[in-house]
Simulated assay, not measured.
Amino acid sequence: MCGRFTNSLTGEELGAYFDVSELDDYANAPAWNIRPTDPVPVIFESPRHTDERTASAEAAAAAAFDAHATERDDPDAVVRRLMAGRWSLVPSWSKELKTKFPTFNARSETAAEKASFKNSVRSKRAILPASGYYEWKTVGKTKTPYYIHDTDEPLSFAGLYSWWRAPSSDEWILTATILTREAVGGLRDIHDRTPVTLPRHFVDTWLDPTIVGDQGLVDAAVEAATPVAEALDFHIVGPVTGDSPDLVNPL
């Protein structure tokens, strides 16, 4: 699983690294102890313009970007966006923002069939960028925190997103989850689950909303992510409390 992670990059740095076209005035500060339901950076692709006949959350949110478009823009052009979202996916049909079961992670083995995630697997896939994440190794009653990261570049967590609107409200909320998989390599000594950490060459495929996602696509993402997960570095850290860059320092 992944229940805490870090992001030390600014919106501009994330935008440059992931070739984002629209930052949506993204202004989340770097954070070293991101928890479920906290605001997180979410990268996804959607059409620049939206059809007025499309009564969807995607249409309502994308309209905010149209002020920067010109008459020469292709209305069907897909734009890569960076927005702040809520870390815990809420399907559009949910009547409440708080779900009965945790939805900050989605198991890659079953996401394509689960009611909460299957629509997002089809066309609302995202990247949740991270500098690293924490995991706890449990031996008896002792839990030891580890910080897991790539020493050279940010992590690209394969994610899913959904737009949610409260009944009788005009406000749409972007929500997202991180896909997880069985741990591989040295990570298996810490925990049996780990995020799906995509390599750069698979990011474009994962984000492409014109590709109809299914379990086959999810499985391909897991396979592509295996070498990345096997190469991750990790070290023991102190108690993960507060929010400071010192949290990731090795003991």
Rank of each mutant, 00 (worst) to 15 (best):
H49Y: 09
N105H: 07
P129G: 02
T50A: 14
A64V: 06
K100Y: 02
H68F: 10
P75K: 04
S94C: 09
W87H: 09
A69F: 12
T144E: 04
T99P: 01
E113G: 14
R107G: 01
T54Y: 07
K100R: 09
N119R: 13
R81G: 08
T138R: 15
E109L: 11
I43Y: 03
T70A: 14
F117G: 11
A60M: 08
S120M: 09
V121W: 05
E58M: 15
V78W: 05
T144K: 11
F104A: 08
R80T: 05
D74R: 12
A59G: 15
V78G: 07
V79W: 07
V42W: 04
T99N: 09
S56N: 07
A63N: 08
N33A: 10
E52G: 14
T99R: 14
K100A: 13
H49Q: 13
N105S: 11
Y133H: 09
W32P: 13
T103V: 01
E71Q: 14
D74V: 05
D73C: 08
N33W: 07
K98Q: 10
P75T: 01
S116N: 12
F117H: 04
P129R: 03
H49K: 15
S108T: 03
A115G: 00
F117R: 10
D51E: 06
T138E: 13
L128F: 06
S88A: 15
F104C: 01
A57P: 13
E113W: 03
H49R: 15
A63W: 08
I34H: 05
P91L: 01
S88P: 11
W87C: 04
R35W: 05
G85I: 05
P129H: 01
D66T: 15
S94G: 01
G140N: 10
W136Y: 09
T138Q: 14
K98F: 09
V78T: 14
Y134K: 02
S131V: 06
H49V: 07
K124P: 00
N119S: 13
S123G: 15
N119M: 06
A111E: 06
T142P: 07
A60W: 07
T142C: 01
K100W: 00
D74E: 11
D51T: 10
D76M: 03
A59N: 13
T50Q: 14
D38N: 15
V121T: 04
P129V: 05
E58C: 15
A64R: 13
R125A: 09
D76P: 00
R122S: 12
V121G: 06
R35C: 04
L97E: 11
S131G: 15
S123N: 12
A84M: 08
W93Q: 02
A67E: 10
T70H: 11
R86Y: 05
S88K: 04
R81L: 06
V139G: 03
Y134D: 08
A106Q: 08
E52A: 14
A69Q: 07
A126V: 01
R125M: 03
D66A: 13
